[in-house]
């Protein structure tokens, strides 16, 4: 049915899959982490360690994708978690903990990118991850997949900061537009535009690459 092919819209349409790794707490009840933060605010380092274990994978992944460099991403993740600890007394559970965490993370990553730009350093654009080779695919298809990963990584690195942040949070971390808006402290309509522009720019890159190949 043509409409089914063209219009896979609605809440049931699968969002890009969120990496299913240990420590990914995307679907965890929000109150648990809020309660942990209340304990952290009282200086409970065990509660902090629990938060770290639950969220470190997604924070490192987000920071790494954002700055385009695994080592720098890990440094940023360290800063983000230490900031989280220091900010615990000011934490107000008005939003999901995860959204607030991404707000802190985005703030750090944007500052880091600005710092890099100020030092005229290049932001990494090497492919951070390669699509795993499927044994059933030909070597040519595997090479093509790796090339595509490189094109996408370079495209991400070239995006303006806020588009990159919105796209990364939405596509790679699986946040809804409302959650991205909370993380970036902007409106949902602004997020819609940011994600749209980023997606169209990346699609254009991929298409250009496909024509050149």
């Amino acid at each position: 049915m043509a409409r089914r092919t063209l219009a896979p819209s609605g809440r049931n349409f699968p969002r890009a899959p969120v990496l299913n790794v240990p420590g990914n707490a995307m679907n965890a009840p929000p109150d648990e982490d809020c309660a942990r933060m209340a304990r952290v605010a009282r200086g409970d380092t065990r509660a902090f360690a629990e938060l770290f274990d639950r969220h470190q994978a997604s924070v490192v992944r987000f920071a790494t994708r954002f700055v385009g460099d695994a080592a720098r991403g890990e440094e940023l993740a360290q800063d983000i978690f230490v900031s989280l600890f220091r900010a615990a007394p000011r934490y107000q559970p008005t939003a999901r903990f995860k959204t607030w965490l991404y707000r802190v993370a985005t703030h750090h990553c944007l500052n880091a990118r600005r710092g890099l730009a100020a030092r005229a350093s290049s932001v990494g654009s090497e492919p951070l991850a390669h699509v795993p080779a499927d044994p059933s695919h030909s070597p040519h298809a595997v090479a093509e997949g790796r090339e595509l990963a490189g094109v996408l990584s370079a495209g991400l690195a070239a995006l303006p900061e806020r588009e990159r942040a919105a796209f990364t949070l939405s596509r790679f971390e699986g946040l809804s537009y409302r959650e991205v808006a909370e993380a970036l402290e902007t409106s949902e309509s602004a997020v819609k535009s940011l994600v749209h522009r980023a997606t169209v720019a990346l699609a254009g890159r991929v298409e250009t690459h496909g024509r050149a190949a």
């Binding site: 890009a16 899959p17 969120v18 990496l19 790794v21 470190q56 994978a57 490192v60 992944r61 790494t64 994708r65 695994a70 890990e74 993740a77 951070l128 991850a129 390669h130 699509v131 795993p132 997949g145 990963a149 996408l152 596509r171 790679f172 990346l202």
Partner: peptide
């Protein structure tokens, strides 16, 4: 992008 998102990044 979904394929890229599901690909593992270097572990911390």
């Amino acid at each position: 992008v979904a394929a890229l998102a599901s690909a593992p990044l270097p572990l911390p």
